[in-house]
Design a protein around this nucleic acid. Sequence first.
DNA 1: TCAATTGCGTAATGCTATAACGTGTGCGAT
DNA 2: ATCGCACACGTTATAGCATTACGCAATTGA
Lengths: 132, 132
Amino acid sequence: MNAPQLTKNQALVFEVLEKADGPLSAYTILDKLRDHGFRAPLQVYRALEKLLEYGVVHRLESINSFVVCAHPNENCHSHGTVAFAICESCGHVMEFHDHEVDHRLMDWTRGKKFKAEKTTIEIRGLCETCAA
Amino acid sequence: MNAPQLTKNQALVFEVLEKADGPLSAYTILDKLRDHGFRAPLQVYRALEKLLEYGVVHRLESINSFVVCAHPNENCHSHGTVAFAICESCGHVMEFHDHEVDHRLMDWTRGKKFKAEKTTIEIRGLCETCAA
DNA sequence: TCAATTGCGTAATGCTATAACGTGTGCGAT
DNA sequence: ATCGCACACGTTATAGCATTACGCAATTGA
Ligand SMILES: [Zn+2]
Ligand SMILES: [Zn+2]
Ligand SMILES: [Zn+2]
Ligand SMILES: [Zn+2]
């Protein structure tokens, strides 16, 4: 899905995520936007819903947080599942694709006649810097 | 990790999950155990913590729920990541392994010098029955 | 005996997400 | 024009998920 012009709230939420150097929870975003008039969680969640729909933000299921897409230009999400490596020490996230993984999982779902809608791949651990 | 003798609470939680035909949330488990003396979420969470540690229960990150391991005998978790296919209609879960996927992800983490601790692979969609 | 560990019970709190209500605005169809 | 509709927005309340903090009892092992 291509992102149309963002509304004011959507743009504010996106900016906060863009400036952050790691994933943020919805409530952290809310706190960062109180000065801009945000008062309630729903203002954040509604904006996130759209940003997710447009594919410019990803949700990290394993840590209930949100992060900007690392591949804003390539339309990477149209050709496979996105995977994430999340450092549990510094919070840094790496987003990547692996077609071979996609194909293996697709093979499995085809074999089981399972109709996949949304696939989550998240690796939690320590990044190179933090593991040293 | 091998499971030692379960305590009373652990056994109760395990039984509830075993009898269920799909994943359950911690609070659903709590409700099912009120007749057995459970009063507080912590009684469930503490039991789950141990059951997860013993590897006899899995946590489904994308739906905040818990399910018994589908491979109680094989010590499957020692030889790779567990993946799940979760039907969003009937709630059924299929647990599987794919060494090729494991190897691809391990190759990636090695390449990035990322020290993986816990990997989540969850496919949400419709099972064969529900997709028909 | 003493200390450390583990499990348990309870209350309180915190974090995450949605439901339900109403408002206003833009825009095409009648 | 004005009606109907879609959409974004604001607010309050509530639902759902998880942990902190405190204290007690039983077990273990030096
Ligand atoms: Zn992306
Ligand atoms: Zn790190
Ligand atoms: Zn298992
Ligand atoms: Zn199904």
